[in-house]
């Protein structure tokens, strides 16, 4: 257990730039862009308001805020928090994609694998520590960074709202940052399960490829898809080739995308009349997310992912090219 902790720490040392710096930079960029957008809106709003009839822009806001609208505004703030976090999770997904491809390949290329292999560390622990870094440590860091950036953005939005007569505190009290953070943290296990097929596939390529793991990882599934499509055109399969692209190629390469399970077989039904921010958030609750686990294809993907990780461990043990 102690070794495992240090193995994860090692990954963190090596990839601090990708795991920590990249999400922070993404958060700062998101903040700056939003700030610029808010200022632009303010300036344009005032200009138009000046051109138009009186001070309607301002008064519109003043009048608009009754109790129900405040609930909606709170939901919008919650969505801001989710949105910024998902943006940062997206950046993290790209980082993790390349991390997985290099995890079991880079040290074979620069031969530092010979140093790691001179220590009493099992290959199983080594590979699992890298898998854990990819789908537990990196997403957790991204969520923390995302939540902090989101909270900062919320404060900025609330400050701008005071310019329009909405008290910042009243607005902020309508948001549910704790609930959002809680939901995001509880989604991390689901994310890890969902990401397994891509994680396993990339790590398998990383452990197996003698060179250019990126090319192999991308080319093999796409080539398979093209072959299947071709046979599909020939009418040999009952299922459309679209099924193969979505459920095999897509899951092998795209499962690191945060929230990839949304709308996959567990239809997200947003009824007309219930499409306001608060209702949309309500229908995207934890129960909805976790209903993805009721779908056997999620588990088939996870099992395939675990099998591929086992393959990666085997290659890590026996691949002999250093």
């Amino acid at each position: 257990m102690k070794s495992f902790y240090w193995l994860v720490k090692r990954e963190f040392w090596e990839h601090k730039g990708g795991f920590v710096t990249a999400p922070i930079v993404a958060g700062i960029i998101a903040l700056v862009l939003n700030l610029m957008l808010l200022i632009t809106t303010e300036v344009l709003g005032r200009r138009w308001a000046g051109v138009g009839k009186g001070d309607s822009f301002h008064t519109n806001f003043d009048g608009a805020f009754n109790g129900d609208n405040l609930v909606q505004a709170g939901a919008v703030l919650d969505m801001t928090l989710y949105g910024v976090t998902f943006l940062i999770l997206g950046v993290m997904a790209i980082v993790v994609f390349f991390y997985c491809l290099g995890a079991l390949y880079d040290d074979r290329r620069d031969r530092s694998i010979l140093f790691w292999k001179s220590l009493p560390l099992s290959d199983t622990n080594t590979v699992l520590s890298k898998a854990a870094s990819a789908v537990v440590v990196a997403p957790a860091i991204a969520v923390v960074t995302g939540v902090i950036s989101g909270l900062l953005l919320m404060v900025v939005v609330a400050i701008f709202a005071t310019f329009h007569g909405v008290p910042a505190w009243r607005l902020l009290m309508e948001a549910h940052p704790f609930r959002v953070v809680f939901t995001l943290l509880l989604l991390l296990p689901l994310y890890a399960i969902w990401a397994l097929p891509t994680l396993g596939w990339l790590m398998l390529c990383s452990a197996w490829a003698r060179s250019k793991p990126f090319l192999w990882a991308i080319a093999l599934p796409i080539a398979a898809g093209i072959v299947v499509s071709w046979f599909g055109l020939m009418g040999l399969f009952n299922r459309g080739s679209g099924w193969f692209w979505a459920n095999v190629v897509g899951r092998l390469l795209g499962s690191l995308v945060p929230g990839g399970w949304v709308g996959q077989n567990n239809e997200l039904i947003i009824m007309h009349g219930h499409d306001d921010p608060a209702s949309v958030l309500q229908s995207l609750d934890l129960a909805y997310h976790y209903s993805a686990l009721a779908n056997p294809s999620t588990w088939i993907g996870a099992i395939a992912g675990v099998a591929m990780i086992a393959g990666a461990i085997w290659f890590r043990r026996w691949r002999d090219d250093s």
Partner: peptide, 17 residues
Amino acid sequence: MEQVCFIADVAVLPRWL
């Protein structure tokens, strides 16, 4: 590997360490 140690070739320590 608890009992055996090796230095395989020079300079195999990872560069980022």
